[in-house]
């Protein structure tokens, strides 16, 4: 079901001072699919995500969105295209409630006045659309939510805006088993709804549980972009640790 990628990066270079972090990186994400971005610490995953999200524009290379070349120089550019990044630290305001966080920076207004009822209704719809059923009230302040609930709010905020691409940076890193399961279900549901989902994860079980494709970075180079079904657990680990994958080993 591949078709054309909605997000297509080619030949991306990125340096910070004298340190070259990304070398000639290619990366694609397809609508309706979860693309797992894997790699060891320092391989350049976060830098690549920041290039995608417009936080650090790439030094060189092509950035294609739905086949057309675009320039993404700031998070606003990315958001205008429908690319949303959920960062690891979630970037939620703990003193505000769920509705206020979902609409932060993009409040609905009637004239000068905030349209609280419309925002609250939209928040209900968005969270129900993700089949989130663990929240007592959308008027709870974030400070009263658990880690998994906060992750859910951050994801809901990313998909509230007719997004096309959602990038999740280690959404399950700090979560317990049950909460991780919930978040992975949401990730899968996003893709099933037609979004292109990019999932950064260190956990191979999570990667194999939800992803359709795997892209592996090794020391700033993209060493493989493969379908998840075509590789084994061990091959992916080899790609991450040495940049090359051996022959498929005997399946155990």
């Amino acid at each position: 079901m591949s078709g054309t990628p909605v997000l297509d990066l080619r030949g991306i270079d990125k340096s910070f001072g004298s340190v070259k972090v990304l070398h000639d990186v290619a990366f694609s994400a397809y609508p309706g699919e979860v693309t797992a971005l894997v790699g060891d610490n320092g391989a350049g995953k976060t830098t690549l995500v920041k290039c995608i999200g417009g936080i650090h524009p790439p030094d060189r290379g092509e950035y294609r969105f739905e086949g057309a070349r675009v320039r993404v120089g700031s998070p606003r550019d990315a958001a205008a295209l429908g690319i949303e990044v959920v960062h690891q630290d979630l970037a939620l305001c703990e003193n505000l409630d769920i509705v206020q966080n979902l609409f932060l920076g993009r409040e609905r207004r009637r004239g000068l006045v905030l349209d609280e009822t419309a925002m609250e209704e939209m928040a209900h719809r968005a969270l129900s659309g993700l089949a989130v059923r663990t929240m007592g009230s959308v008027r709870q302040p974030i400070s009263t939510l658990s880690g998994g609930q906060r992750q859910t709010v951050a994801i809901a905020r990313a998909v509230l805006w007719d997004s096309r691409v959602v990038v999740l940076d280690e959404p399950a890193a700090a979560l317990g088993v049950a909460q991780t399961q919930q978040v992975l279900e949401i990730v899968r549901r996003l893709a099933d709804n037609g979004l292109a989902v990019v999932l950064i994860s260190h956990n191979m079980n999570d990667v194999f549980a939800v992803s359709d494709r795997i892209a592996a970075l090794y020391l700033g180079r993209m060493v493989a972009q493969v379908r998840t079904a075509d590789v084994t657990h061990r091959q992916v680990v080899e790609l991450i640790t040495s940049g090359v994958a051996g022959e498929p080993g005997p399946r155990r």
């Binding site: 960062h87 939620l92 003193n95 920076g105 993009r106």
Partner: peptide
């Protein structure tokens, strides 16, 4: 509440 979050929210 969170200046960095506010900045990222535009």
């Amino acid at each position: 509440g969170n200046a960095e979050a506010a900045r990222r929210a535009g």
